[in-house]
């Protein structure tokens, strides 16, 4: 019988402790971000999909079409194609495609790129039901930015 009352007592005590904590929390400001009404600014190191860096001087990318990013990518999601053009030293980039569906955001491509022609974007509002929407033509995207 004594055990019975003791367990009622400890149970009540435990309940009161819990309620006290709940009560304290009840008056705290909500911590949830009201997405999409509020959006976060990503930290500078955030890894979004990769993009070509725009050189402010020339107004265009600095890719030399060496293809090292494509070679280093573990998931094979980069397709780079450069062309020889008359009167231009080296190759001219004509195609830079990223298949973002298989990208693991590892950064190997960026580390492999000697001229620093690619970087992570801060893009995170990405959602679609079609996988084609994640096949990016980075060259065209760079043009759009202009």
């Amino acid at each position: 019988m004594a055990g019975y009352f003791k367990s009622i007592l400890t149970g009540t005590k435990s309940l009161v402790t819990g309620l006290k904590i709940t009560q304290a929390e009840f008056f705290r400001k909500p911590i949830t971000l009201q997405y999409p009404h509020e959006v976060l600014v990503m930290t500078p190191r955030y890894r979004g999909h990769i993009q070509l860096v725009k050189n402010p001087e020339t107004g265009t990318h600095q890719c030399i079409s060496c293809g090292l990013c494509q070679k280093g990518c573990p998931s094979g999601c980069i397709t780079v194609r450069g062309e020889k053009r008359e009167g231009v030293k080296g190759k001219v980039l004509v195609q830079y495609d990223l298949d973002f569906t298989t990208c693991s955001l590892c950064g190997q491509c960026i580390e492999n790129c000697k001229p620093g022609a690619i970087e992570f974007s801060l893009e995170y509002n990405l959602a679609s039901t079609r996988k084609e929407d994640f096949h990016y033509d980075l060259l065209a995207r760079l043009e759009e930015q202009k």
Binding site: T43, R45, Y46, R47, S104, L105, C106, G107, F120
Partner: peptide
């Protein structure tokens, strides 16, 4: 961790 690594869960 995101501020240093750039990712929140699947760090590399």
């Amino acid at each position: 961790l995101e501020s240093v690594t750039g990712s929140r869960l699947t760090y590399c």
